[in-house]
Design a protein around this nucleic acid. Structure first.
Lengths: 207, 207
DNA sequence: CGCCTTGTGCACCGATCGGTGCACAAGTGC
DNA sequence: GCACTTGTGCACCGATCGGTGCACAAGGCG
């Protein structure tokens, strides 16, 4: 699915090789950011869970913001793949269904923190977190654009009625997905959220 | 609508009277928490905006957690009154409409921070923010209970069909409200979110 | 082997965190 | 006036924040 971090950063192998698995460490960091948010995850929290020293973290990932960015990238590839999978569905209705169903499952995955890193990672933050916050705002907007473009295509192809508003449909689904994330953080179960998702799509396309 | 803070804390007037307006200071603190979240709002941020010294803040409000609790209380009374107003509507359909319309307006109020303090105030936090996070989880759950009880009453009264699920309806509306908050933080406008709210209620009651 | 480059562990940086001790100011009640 | 109670401003607390300097370890390459 994705290459290991060491392979992505292709550099000549000179000097002492690192003693830890950068990919595993990045996955650990992703979890910490997912659970505690950008501001709530201290370097001590992160490096302890990653099993490496501060110095090794900085050498391998740059700084805290870059680590967050790379963790979000992994999150996108691993936890948010359902978005791309949904977009590939045959019809707009299947796209919507798969998108919300995927959101329900991704936000209530056993063994994973509840909710979505892209939502709760940095919603309201202090001065030190504005970069992370803006990164996530752009991340969520990107997903919404993907949906909008897909629905625009559906309109063009006649899959959706000509009067359908792709922008509205995308925002509608993303709003529900965002709400599902908040609900999951509050302890809502997969079954409860699945019923919500089903209700949200009872009338599709809404018009 | 609500008494001034000084009046609530009824105590004999002995000793030097405080030089600042505790109610105004609390409203300022509410704004800071609203904008930056519990963890993101430092005591320096808070006291500077409140216009008082750290010592005065501690004397008047206890500590940061209590200040947050009291700020949330004010927020509930001032910004989230639309919930109680919606609950008082005649029919379940009007309750739902007023609830979502109120959420849209409260989350995009000009001159106020976008989004909802109860959502973005403390979603994913570090060790220092767990109390605030759990407070907000309970706060959101309480609003959802109000909706559920109101819809249960509607079922009992025949306003909603006997097969309607009050718990599901309440969670559905709260999920959309939560999503609206996230969307507002991302820059969505009142008009855009109002269309989302309208779409969410096109088919009411969903069944 | 020695040279060079890079990773690692530890101590440490200045800044900021939430919270407080203390001296003094400003009121009320006598 | 006095005693008493409480608010205020400032300096300061230990802890923690993100980030680094430095000595040394561990590999490739000649």
């Amino acid at each position: 699915m994705h290459k290991a971090y060491d392979e992505l950063v292709e550099k000549a192998q000179v000097g002492r090789p690192r003693e830890f698995d950068a990919e595993q460490a990045l996955l650990k960091a992703m979890r910490v950011f997912w659970e505690q948010g950008y501001d709530g995850a201290s370097l001590t929290d992160l490096t302890e869970r990653m099993g490496i020293s501060r110095k090794s973290m900085y050498a391998a990932f740059g700084n805290k913001e870059e680590l967050f960015r790379k963790a979000l990238q992994r999150y996108t590839e691993i936890q948010a793949v359902y978005v791309l999978e949904a977009l590939a569905a045959e019809t707009a209705g299947e796209v919507a269904t798969r998108f919300l169903d995927g959101a329900v499952r991704a936000n209530t995955r056993p063994g994973c923190p509840p909710g979505c890193l892209g939502v709760q990672g940095a919603l309201a933050v202090g001065a030190t977190g504005v970069v992370a916050r803006d990164t996530l705002i752009a991340w969520r907007a990107l997903g919404q654009e993907y949906l909008r473009d897909r629905f625009q295509r559906a309109v063009d192809e006649g899959d959706l009625p000509a009067g359908a508003d792709p922008d509205l449909l995308a925002r509608y689904l993303m709003t529900i997905s965002n709400g599902i994330s908040v609900q999951a953080t509050g302890g809502a179960t997969e079954e409860e959220l699945q019923r919500v998702a089903d209700v949200a799509l009872l009338n599709w396309p809404p018009a």
